[in-house]
Design a binder for these strands. Structure first.
Lengths: 225, 225
DNA sequence: CGAAGTATTGACTACCTTCAAAAATTGTGG
DNA sequence: CCACAATTTTTGAAGGTAGTCAATACTTCG
């Protein structure tokens, strides 16, 4: 049974685990501008990044130009863990981002000499798997409306802040990013958001800011039927 | 660019890594009959299993009864790695299976005292992430025909054996399993397989055995356009 | 051999996509 | 700060792919 509660979408645990990395190994900070790549699929995977602020996206491309966005990474999240020599996704900054840079030992998935680091990385990878499993449910089982509603809910849990009219959520990514994350078209995303707006579930000050005015309605839209 | 080559679908690396687990920690063997559960979502995650022979499936359920199959696990694969106290998927035997049983230390994701075990688990989890990323591409970007063709190709790479008429592949799972793995209906899977059969791409001795008679045609069906 | 379960096939429908155009937003230079 | 161009988002109309409902054929197993 899928109910996108605070718990299932929360990243407080991620943050706690990721925080333990700080200070254990040297980690210079890097700045990347919105739209710019961090790495490409196939690049040598010699660096793991931790998002400090901003949002990055990982994606895979099909030969016909279609794109699947795998994940949006928020502050605390790790990007770039690979089991072999090369990255398996594209990765770009959605907004301007600051990142902590962890260099891997030559060819080795762990970095530094601290064996506990490996355990932290394992913990994080296992969490990533759990998050991806939720994403699968969305791609395979849900209608367009359910997908968009679930997406807004998950963002609300990650980065929503209480405001005058309800939980206020920033949508730093473009409609095309949302579409490619949910496996629908830009038009469908736009139409669905409009529908949620006209039915009074959300308020849309501008295309990149959503206010959830009826949380219960949004939750039921996310698991309708 | 997604071309389901032997490389992208091969599990030879998985097997090599998984093999290193053998003998390092006590691992009794368990037998589970086809259709029977190994564990349910929410169960205490105190065991990691390694498939010896047979096939198991992991899945997640929606409150409306819809199901998303996350993965089919073949010999060598690990099932049941979790970052917290409980399993995050359902898990059942597709066929009769033999499993190696690894008990975890209380609440700890690693088992045994060997720190290298943790590195192996991390390696495996990272591979699982890479595999799931390919699966995402299938769910989000592909048509029904492309999904079924890609699925048959991936099975061919995992368990196909050369035969008289081409690569022979066993389909131990039901049509409903394939449908829930690909995010389509049973009818669509059936119709698509029939189409591949009538166009001479595959031969179907019976519903659970496929012979790939035209590998190039199948590959192009998997990445058409 | 018969019953239950599974797979295939058919007809119709609906949701989402595609193609196209208008509206709104963002960014840039004067 | 405003104007204009480029990009992004929204909206509209038509069509197609896959879903739903229903019936038949095939397997499997007691």
């Amino acid at each position: 049974m899928f109910v996108p509660t605070m718990k299932s979408f929360s990243n407080t645990v991620e943050k706690a685990v990721a925080a333990r990395l700080e200070g254990r190994v040297p980690a210079p900070v890097k700045h990347v501008e919105a739209g710019q790549p961090l790495f490409h699929e196939g690049d040598m995977a010699n660096t793991v990044f931790q998002v400090i602020d901003g949002v990055v996206r990982t994606s895979k491309l099909l030969s016909n130009g279609k794109r699947q966005i795998i994940s949006f990474c928020y502050p605390g999240d790790l990007v770039g863990i690979s089991h072999d020599q090369s990255y398996h996704t594209e990765c770009e900054a959605v907004s301007d981002v600051h990142l902590r840079v962890f260099r891997k030992n030559a060819g080795n998935i762990r970095f530094g000499d601290d064996p506990e680091i490996v355990e932290l990385l394992l913990h994080f990878a296992a969490m990533e798997v759990a998050n991806m499993q939720e994403h699968f449910l969305m791609l395979g089982c849900k209608t367009a409306t359910e997908k968009v509603a679930s997406f807004l809910l998950s963002l609300a849990c990650r980065s929503g802040v209480p405001g005058q009219l309800g939980i206020s959520v920033s949508l730093p990514m473009k409609r095309a990013d949302i579409a490619d994350y949910l496996g629908v078209t830009i038009e469908t995303v736009s139409r669905t958001i409009t529908k949620l707006k006209t039915t009074g579930v959300i308020f849309l000050p501008d295309p990149h800011n959503v206010c959830i005015t009826d949380m219960e309605a949004l939750k039921s839209a996310a698991e309708k039927n």
